[in-house]
Deep mutational scan, measured.
Amino acid sequence: VTLFVALYDYEARTEDDLSFHKGSKFQILNSSEGDWWEARSLTTGETGYIPSNYVAPV
């Protein structure tokens, strides 16, 4: 499992996005959609889309 960590805070703009804070960790579920990845937050357990340029591999 590849884990990613948030580099910045992000406020969701749609109900499909995940809001998160810098330092939040994610499991990436689908990275084939270009700049928006489907991810599960390891902090909240919620699933949604995150901007790929806001995260980096742990």
Score class of each variant (00 low, 15 high):
D16Y: 15
I50M: 02
T44K: 03
W37R: 02
S31H: 10
D17R: 15
K22V: 10
Y8L: 08
E33H: 14
A12H: 05
P51Y: 06
D17K: 15
T43M: 10
T44F: 03
L3P: 05
H21G: 09
F4A: 09
G34I: 10
T47G: 03
I28Y: 02
K22R: 10
P51D: 05
H21W: 09
D9F: 04
K22F: 05
S24L: 05
S24D: 15
A39C: 03
I50F: 01
K22N: 04
D35Q: 11
K22S: 07
W37E: 00
A12W: 02
Y8N: 06
K25G: 05
Q27S: 07
S41E: 10
E15S: 14
K22I: 08
T47K: 09
D17S: 14
Y8D: 07
N53A: 14
T14R: 15
K25N: 06
V5L: 07
S32L: 12
L18Y: 05
A6D: 01
N30R: 08
Y49F: 13
G23T: 02
G23W: 04
L42G: 02
N53P: 05
E33D: 15
T14F: 15
E15T: 12
S41F: 06
F4L: 04
T47F: 07
I50Q: 01
F20K: 00
P51H: 07
E15W: 09
E38I: 15
G48A: 03
K22L: 05
I28W: 02
E11C: 14
I28S: 01
A6G: 04
L18V: 05
K25H: 13
A6N: 00
R40A: 06
S52Y: 07
R13V: 13
E33C: 15
S24W: 15
R13W: 08
L7F: 03
S52D: 02
E33L: 14
H21S: 14
D16G: 15
L3Q: 08
F4V: 13
N53D: 11
T47R: 10
S31M: 15
T43Y: 08
L7Q: 05
Q27A: 09
Y54H: 09
S41V: 07
A39K: 00
E46V: 08
L42W: 07
L42D: 04
S24H: 15
G34H: 12
S19L: 01
K25D: 03
E11F: 09
T14Q: 10
S24I: 06
R40E: 06
A12F: 02
S24N: 14
L7R: 02
G34L: 11
K25T: 12
S32Q: 13
S24V: 10
W36R: 14
S24E: 15
F20T: 00
H21F: 12
V55T: 03
D9C: 08
F4W: 15
I28Q: 01
D9M: 04
D35H: 10
V55A: 03
L42H: 05
P57V: 08
S32M: 11
G34S: 13
H21Q: 13
Q27C: 13
F20I: 03
E15D: 13
T14I: 06
Y8C: 15
N30V: 08
W36D: 03
V5H: 05
N53L: 09
Y10D: 01
G45K: 05
I28P: 03
Y49A: 05
Q27V: 15
L18P: 01
D17L: 10
L7G: 02
H21Y: 11
V1Y: 14
F20W: 01
D35C: 14
F20P: 00
Y54N: 04
T43W: 07
S32A: 11
S32P: 10
A12P: 04
S24Y: 13
D9A: 06
E33G: 14
S41H: 11
F4S: 03
Q27G: 03
Y8Q: 08
Y8F: 11
L3H: 10
F26G: 00
G45H: 06
G23R: 02
S52N: 06
F20H: 00
A56Q: 10
T14S: 13
N53H: 12
D16S: 14
I28E: 01
T14W: 14
V58M: 11
D16L: 14
A56T: 12
T43N: 10
